[in-house]
Amino acid sequence: MMLKIDNLHVRVAGKEILKGLTLGVKAGEVHAIMGPNGAGKSTLGNVLAGRAGYEITQGSVEYNGANLLALEPEQRAAEGVFLAFQYPVEIAGVNNTYFLKAALNAQRKYRGEAELDSMQFLKSVREKLRVLHISDELLHRAVNAGFSGGEKKRNEIFQMALLEPKLAILDETDSGLDIDAMKLVADGVNAMRDPQRAFIVITHYQRLLDYIVPDFVHVMVDGRIVESGDKSLALKLEEHGYAWIAERKLAGVA
């Protein structure tokens, strides 16, 4: 098991958001996490990536057999955890290529690998660009500065391609994208599917899952996973809405 989340309870600003979440992810698998607003989906992504301000009150997260929660965000990144942000951050004045090279080399250094020089780095960048159909114009601009919504999301996927994580978490990467942009993002993800790599795809809508076909679909309501199944679960959800799950859950409890 690559990722083992067991009975995870998390508070944010004193309020319990995750209330006993359990999830296991193996290498090579794609898990979709769906659920209504406020269910705690983004909290899960942030907790896994190590954002500050999340208090873990109970439970554990093991990543490749080690305690993930004990690591700093940059260590998690170097260990192969990647979060594609729902709202990618702009960093004015820092060139996108420079940023990526710094990130990649910081990770390589942590892992005891040789750092890439500019030539090697650019070679790798060109290969990824070709696969992802991203114009290299984005590379010469400051990180996300003045990017359109679609460009920002594509830049996240590009970063993912370049950093080659083992566990990629996509936090509502489809939100705010038109259908063409969404297809491009999905193509990028599909190109990276690999027996050694796992994905957690957080989304509101089933639509993205037409393009990134998941192995498992989990429905999250009120800080817990209440239903798991295969691709067909997403379709049922689309048909019946989240209320259906809530009803089923109540019925189950009763």
Partner: peptide, 11 residues
């Protein structure tokens, strides 16, 4: 911004 950088591996 800092979290963004850190999540990419930069201290």
């Amino acid at each position: 911004q800092l979290f963004y950088c850190r999540s990419r591996g930069i201290a």
